[in-house]
Protein backbone atom coordinates (compact mmCIF):
# COMPACT_ATOMS: atom_id res chain seq x y z
CA UNK A 1 0.00 0.00 0.00
CA UNK A 2 2.74 2.42 1.01
CA UNK A 3 4.75 1.61 -2.12
CA UNK A 4 1.72 2.17 -4.31
CA UNK A 5 1.18 5.60 -2.70
CA UNK A 6 4.81 6.43 -3.36
CA UNK A 7 4.56 5.38 -7.00
CA UNK A 8 1.32 7.29 -7.58
CA UNK A 9 2.91 10.43 -6.11
CA UNK A 10 6.06 9.98 -8.20
CA UNK A 11 3.93 9.55 -11.32
CA UNK A 12 2.14 12.76 -10.42
CA UNK A 13 5.28 14.86 -10.99
CA UNK A 14 5.65 14.28 -14.77
CA UNK A 15 1.87 14.54 -15.18
CA UNK A 16 1.92 17.90 -13.39
CA UNK A 17 4.75 19.11 -15.64
CA UNK A 18 2.77 18.06 -18.74
CA UNK A 19 -0.39 19.67 -17.31
CA UNK A 20 1.28 23.04 -16.81
CA UNK A 21 3.45 23.15 -19.95
CA UNK A 22 2.02 21.04 -22.78
CA UNK A 23 -1.69 20.74 -22.00
CA UNK A 24 -2.33 24.53 -22.36
CA UNK A 25 -1.21 24.11 -25.99
CA UNK A 26 -4.23 21.87 -26.70
CA UNK A 27 -6.74 24.21 -25.05
CA UNK A 28 -9.88 24.99 -27.02
CA UNK A 29 -11.31 28.43 -26.22
CA UNK A 30 -9.42 28.35 -22.91
CA UNK A 31 -10.99 25.04 -21.96
CA UNK A 32 -8.24 22.67 -20.91
CA UNK A 33 -8.45 19.00 -19.93
CA UNK A 34 -7.27 17.90 -16.49
CA UNK A 35 -4.70 15.09 -16.75
CA UNK A 36 -4.22 15.00 -12.98
CA UNK A 37 -7.89 14.20 -12.51
CA UNK A 38 -7.71 11.35 -15.04
CA UNK A 39 -4.81 9.87 -13.07
CA UNK A 40 -6.71 10.35 -9.82
CA UNK A 41 -9.84 8.62 -11.14
CA UNK A 42 -7.73 5.73 -12.43
CA UNK A 43 -6.20 5.22 -8.98
CA UNK A 44 -9.54 5.67 -7.22
CA UNK A 45 -11.07 2.88 -9.33
CA UNK A 46 -8.15 0.48 -9.05
CA UNK A 47 -7.11 1.13 -5.42
CA UNK A 48 -10.33 2.09 -3.63
CA UNK A 49 -12.24 5.03 -2.21
CA UNK A 50 -10.00 5.87 0.75
CA UNK A 51 -6.92 5.70 -1.45
CA UNK A 52 -8.60 8.01 -4.00
CA UNK A 53 -9.68 10.50 -1.34
CA UNK A 54 -6.22 10.74 0.25
CA UNK A 55 -4.50 10.86 -3.14
CA UNK A 56 -6.86 13.64 -4.29
CA UNK A 57 -5.87 15.60 -1.19
CA UNK A 58 -2.15 15.15 -1.89
CA UNK A 59 -2.48 15.95 -5.61
CA UNK A 60 -4.56 19.05 -4.86
CA UNK A 61 -2.11 20.30 -2.25
CA UNK A 62 0.87 19.92 -4.61
CA UNK A 63 -1.01 21.53 -7.49
CA UNK A 64 -2.05 24.54 -5.38
CA UNK A 65 1.50 24.98 -4.10
CA UNK A 66 3.19 25.15 -7.49
CA UNK A 67 0.60 26.97 -9.59
CA UNK A 68 -0.28 29.94 -7.41
CA UNK A 69 -4.00 29.21 -7.22
CA UNK A 70 -5.79 29.74 -3.90
CA UNK A 71 -4.10 27.25 -1.57
CA UNK A 72 -6.71 24.70 -0.51
CA UNK A 73 -9.15 25.22 -3.40
CA UNK A 74 -7.81 22.43 -5.61
CA UNK A 75 -7.12 20.37 -2.47
CA UNK A 76 -10.77 20.30 -1.45
CA UNK A 77 -11.98 19.81 -5.04
CA UNK A 78 -9.65 16.88 -5.78
CA UNK A 79 -10.33 15.28 -2.38
CA UNK A 80 -14.07 15.17 -3.08
CA UNK A 81 -13.49 14.14 -6.72
CA UNK A 82 -11.31 11.22 -5.55
CA UNK A 83 -14.02 10.25 -3.07
CA UNK A 84 -16.74 10.33 -5.76
CA UNK A 85 -14.63 8.31 -8.21
CA UNK A 86 -13.94 5.83 -5.40
CA UNK A 87 -17.58 4.72 -5.48
CA UNK A 88 -16.66 2.88 -8.68
CA UNK A 89 -13.94 0.80 -7.05
CA UNK A 90 -15.66 -2.54 -6.69
CA UNK A 91 -13.02 -5.30 -6.63
CA UNK A 92 -14.73 -7.51 -9.21
CA UNK A 93 -15.88 -4.74 -11.54
CA UNK A 94 -12.59 -2.92 -12.12
CA UNK A 95 -12.30 -4.23 -15.67
CA UNK A 96 -15.81 -3.02 -16.47
CA UNK A 97 -15.20 0.43 -15.02
CA UNK A 98 -11.92 0.76 -16.91
CA UNK A 99 -13.63 0.13 -20.22
CA UNK A 100 -13.46 2.91 -22.81
CA UNK A 101 -16.92 4.50 -22.35
CA UNK A 102 -17.47 3.69 -18.66
CA UNK A 103 -14.16 5.22 -17.66
CA UNK A 104 -15.03 8.36 -19.65
CA UNK A 105 -18.35 8.70 -17.82
CA UNK A 106 -16.73 8.27 -14.40
CA UNK A 107 -14.08 10.86 -15.29
CA UNK A 108 -16.82 13.22 -16.50
CA UNK A 109 -18.72 12.87 -13.20
CA UNK A 110 -15.59 13.34 -11.07
CA UNK A 111 -14.39 16.28 -13.20
CA UNK A 112 -17.79 17.95 -12.93
CA UNK A 113 -17.68 17.68 -9.12
CA UNK A 114 -14.04 18.82 -9.09
CA UNK A 115 -14.66 21.88 -11.28
CA UNK A 116 -17.87 22.94 -9.51
CA UNK A 117 -16.16 22.87 -6.11
CA UNK A 118 -13.06 24.60 -7.45
CA UNK A 119 -15.16 27.34 -9.10
CA UNK A 120 -17.10 27.83 -5.86
CA UNK A 121 -13.95 28.32 -3.80
CA UNK A 122 -12.31 30.49 -6.42
CA UNK A 123 -14.86 33.20 -5.51
CA UNK A 124 -16.08 34.36 -8.89
CA UNK A 125 -18.61 37.17 -9.12
CA UNK A 126 -21.90 35.76 -7.88
CA UNK A 127 -23.83 38.53 -9.68
CA UNK A 128 -22.88 36.97 -13.04
CA UNK A 129 -24.96 34.31 -14.74
CA UNK A 130 -24.25 31.35 -12.46
CA UNK A 131 -25.46 28.71 -14.94
CA UNK A 132 -23.29 30.12 -17.70
CA UNK A 133 -20.29 30.19 -15.37
CA UNK A 134 -20.85 26.58 -14.33
CA UNK A 135 -21.31 25.60 -17.97
CA UNK A 136 -18.03 27.26 -18.98
CA UNK A 137 -16.02 26.47 -15.87
CA UNK A 138 -17.32 23.01 -15.02
CA UNK A 139 -19.22 21.32 -17.84
CA UNK A 140 -16.91 22.14 -20.76
CA UNK A 141 -13.61 21.25 -18.99
CA UNK A 142 -15.26 18.08 -17.61
CA UNK A 143 -16.42 17.08 -21.08
CA UNK A 144 -12.99 17.72 -22.62
CA UNK A 145 -11.29 15.80 -19.79
CA UNK A 146 -13.69 12.87 -20.28
CA UNK A 147 -12.97 12.78 -24.03
CA UNK A 148 -9.23 12.77 -23.44
CA UNK A 149 -9.56 10.10 -20.74
CA UNK A 150 -11.24 7.76 -23.22
CA UNK A 151 -8.18 8.02 -25.47
CA UNK A 152 -5.74 7.58 -22.59
CA UNK A 153 -7.52 4.57 -21.08
CA UNK A 154 -6.98 2.60 -24.31
CA UNK A 155 -3.25 2.65 -23.59
CA UNK A 156 -3.47 2.32 -19.79
CA UNK A 157 -2.88 -1.07 -18.14
CA UNK A 158 -6.06 -2.77 -16.93
CA UNK A 159 -4.37 -4.33 -13.91
CA UNK A 160 -2.72 -2.59 -10.96
CA UNK A 161 0.61 -2.05 -12.62
CA UNK A 162 0.78 1.73 -12.33
Amino acid sequence: MKTSYLFSILLFIPVLIIQTTIVPLISIAQVIPDLILILLVYYSITEGQIYGTVLGFVYGFAFDLVTGSLLGSTMIAKTVAGFVAGYFSSENKIDIYLMFFNFGMIVFLAALVDQIIFSFFSAFDISSNIFLIFFQNAFLPAFYTALLSMIIIIFAPKKRIL
Binding site: T20, S27, S119
Partner: peptide
Protein backbone atom coordinates in the same frame (compact mmCIF):
# COMPACT_ATOMS: atom_id res chain seq x y z
CA UNK B 1 7.55 28.57 -17.96
CA UNK B 2 4.11 27.32 -16.96
CA UNK B 3 0.51 28.44 -16.94
CA UNK B 4 -2.50 27.70 -14.80
CA UNK B 5 -5.55 28.56 -16.82
CA UNK B 6 -8.51 27.87 -14.71
CA UNK B 7 -11.15 30.28 -15.94
CA UNK B 8 -11.23 32.10 -12.63
CA UNK B 9 -7.66 32.05 -11.37
CA UNK B 10 -5.33 32.65 -14.29
CA UNK B 11 -1.68 32.65 -13.27
Amino acid sequence: VSKSFSRVQGT
